[in-house]
Amino acid sequence: MYLYIYDNFLTEKKYQSQLYKIENRLVDLGIKGRVVRLNILKNMAEVVEDGIKQGVKTVVVVGNDVSFSKIINIVANKNIVLGIIPVDNKSKIGKILGIPPLGAACEVLAQRIIKNIDLGKVGNYYFIDSAAITNEDTTVHFSKYSIKPTHVTNIVSFNNLGVFAAAEETRFNFDPTDGQLELVINSSGDSLKKGSELTILPFKEVRVECSQPGAFIIADQVTKLKPPVIVSVACKKLKTIVGNKRLF
């Protein structure tokens, strides 16, 4: 049984026709299920809990990368399959998992290729894509060595899926099924220049410290945590539907 959760920003009128198309395609493919539209009174966690009680085995989130990140912590410890339908072509998670936007995503859901992928864990929160901290006083401790950026504009990030430049000409794909995360330190700030200024280190667990007060580590652009924190990999934690064109 499928449960489709529409994120609350999809109540805007401009999305209505796209949602109708998705619903029609799901009917055509025979994977129609219960639809829940999130709003101020309905949150994602309650909807998923109710769905599981009613026998839901597959939860599909319709939305953007923030929507997908929000569901991760809800479904990570539950025995259900997660699917996603991106509503625009800006979804990094969609691209890496090989899921095109809108109606084309329904075809991928119908094919039902399921992979157990790793999740990152920062403190007690799971993340699917990355956790990042922007601060020059950050030190990352590995088991036998520590690493510290020496440049003010460094962005320190802990990645599960990959690092894309804005133009996507430059990208580093990381395998979310390899049982490790990648520490990336980009000294050129937001821009990602090919092969230069980057530090890349695979790891299973690190401790992140920051000597400046007020610094935060932000997981999947959703959750803020105060260092010191442990960042680790949760191997094969999430059952998710992926496409043939996935980047791993």
């Binding site: 036998k144 950026p149 460094n154 000294s187 530090t199 280190l201």
Partner: peptide
């Protein structure tokens, strides 16, 4: 890869 603006100890 250890980039140019990084110091590793250990």
């Amino acid at each position: 890869i250890i980039g140019p603006s990084v110091r590793v100890e250990g």
